[in-house]
Each structure stands twice: as structure tokens, then as C-alpha cells.
């Protein structure tokens, strides 16, 4: 089983939409996939026509000391979503402290999931360090847009040699072309060697409660996501 996480370098870069589309694409390539919502917004399931902010989820269950694994939703055979659950701000702050105190919590859970899934994808929150650090991932990707704000936020992170993925790339933009050129030259080893293009289909897919690949299989973004999924299979050394 390969554990992978996506985390935005800041909010609003399209991390959850990308994760939902990637999970769907990996499943289309024959993989058994579990998507885990690590964000208190509790909205990952909307990409798969599930309820908004379901009450039950792994975080709610962890706080209530209930079994955490009973609240996953099966979208299709071999494609599941585990929601966060409804949690108040004070509670998720307490849960974050708990996750920092118990850094092995999700590792143990991942080991229990290893037989059931080929991939576990974590949608990490941009803040909440305990939530972001707890899953131990083979592939940890930071998602960013090719804009100056993301470039600023990226600078202090580069010493940790993160893997980062450009989302919503618009080749018609001089600034975006320049930024990607700089990143390709300066951070060759850190940059995922493909960019996800800006495509209206990605936004429309959420408005239809579907991942991009199901909503518009012929779209540019669906092709980009399939390329990303193939790259993940290569990186994770899993046959398609």
C-alpha cells in the first residue's frame, strides 16, 4: 500500500479537487483507493456526491473514542472516502494536540488498511500541524499555483526539499510561464514533472458533485490527472 498526501502551500490552490480527481483516476487505472479527509471543513465527500459535512467521521470517532474505521463511504467497489466528521473548533484543536502527542496514530491505522487498499490518499489541511504531520506518507506533495504569493510561501519550505505540484497552470500567462521556468531551473528535483492546467471542467466537476475524470473524461484536466496518476504509479512502483 502506498500512502500519499496532498497539502496546499496555502488555502484555495485546488488541493481537495485535485485529490478527489487523482483518487478517481487511480481507481480507473485498477487501483483500490481510500481517500481520507484530514480537514475540519469535512467536505471532501462532496466531490463524490456524498452528504455535506456528515456527522460521523474518523476525527469525530477518535474524539469520542469510537472505532474510526466504521465511517468510510464506498463510492464504488475499491473506491472509498473516509470523512472527517463534524467537529467544533475547540475539539479539532484538542485533536491536533493529541495527534502531536501520538505521532504513530495514523501509521498504525495505515498498517491496518494495507491489505484492503493499494493507495491511501490524505487531503491535509494547510494549518493544523498535528493533522498534517501524522500520516506517514511515501509520497508527500505540496500543491501550489504559479503565482507570486505561492512563490513567496515556497521559499522557506525549499530547505526541506518538498515535492511540489503546479495546479491551474495557464500557459497564456507570462508570469506563470516565468515562474514555472524559474522553478524548473532552480528546483528541478522538487518539482513534479508535469503541471495541471487551469480548466473550467475542474470547477464544474465539484458543482456537479463529481470528480473531474467522471464529469468530463475528455477534458484537458482529466488527461492531466491521468498523467499524474500514471506518474504516481511509477513513483510508487505499482503496476497499472
Amino acid at each position: 500500500m502506498i500512502a500519499m498526501s496532498l497539502r496546499g502551500v496555502r488555502g484555495g490552490v485546488g488541493t481537495s479537487s485535485t485529490l478527489a480527481a487523482l483518487g478517481y483516476a487511480l481507481h480507473e487505472l485498477g487501483q483500490k483507493v481510500l481517500l481520507v479527509d484530514m480537514c475540519p471543513e469535512n467536505s471532501l465527500g462532496l466531490h463524490f456526491n456524498l452528504n455535506l459535512a456528515p456527522r460521523e467521521g474518523w476525527a469525530r470517532a477518535t474524539l469520542d473514542q469510537q472505532p474510526w474505521h466504521e465511517h468510510a463511504w464506498s463510492v464504488e467497489p475499491g473506491l472509498c472516502v473516509l470523512p472527517y466528521g463534524q467537529v467544533q473548533p475547540a475539539e479539532y484543536t484538542r485533536l491536533d494536540a493529541l495527534l502531536l502527542e501520538q505521532p504513530q496514530l495514523w501509521s498504525q491505522r495505515q498498517a491496518a488498511l494495507a491489505d484492503a487498499f493499494d493507495w491511501v490518499l490524505f487531503d491535509l489541511p494547510q494549518r493544523l500541524p498535528g493533522h498534517a504531520a501524522n500520516p506517514h506518507c511515501d509520497i508527500a506533495v505540496m500543491v501550489l499555483n504559479a503565482d507570486a504569493a505561492c512563490h513567496v510561501l515556497l521559499q522557506p519550505l525549499l530547505a526541506k526539499k518538498p515535492l511540489f505540484l503546479v495546479n491551474r497552470f495557464d500557459a497564456a500567462s507570462q508570469l506563470q510561464r516565468d515562474l514555472v521556468l524559474i522553478w524548473q531551473h532552480r528546483y528541478t528535483q522538487s518539482l513534479v514533472p508535469l503541471s495541471l492546467h487551469a480548466d473550467e471542467a475542474m470547477g464544474e466537476a465539484l458543482a456537479r458533485s463529481e470528480p473531474a475524470g467522471r464529469y468530463a473524461p475528455g477534458s484537458l484536466i482529466a488527461h492531466d490527472i491521468i498523467s499524474l496518476a500514471s506518474w504516481c504509479l511509477l513513483r510508487g512502483r505499482r503496476p497499472a
Binding site: 507570486a148 512563490h151 513567496v152 521559499q155 507570462q174 508570469l175 516565468d178 515562474l179 521556468l181 524559474i182 531551473h185
Partner: peptide, 21 residues
């Protein structure tokens, strides 16, 4: 490619500033 990189830094002073920082 080197020229394109230099031109990018000329176009966007913030990027040049961060490069130096």
C-alpha cells in the same frame, strides 16, 4: 534558457528580490 531566466527576473522585481534573499 539562461537569457529567458534573466528576462523573467527583469520583468518581476519581487522574484529577483526573493532570488537574492
Amino acid at each position: 534558457a539562461h537569457m529567458e531566466l534573466l528576462q523573467a527576473f527583469e520583468r518581476w522585481p519581487l522574484l529577483a528580490y526573493l532570488e537574492a534573499q
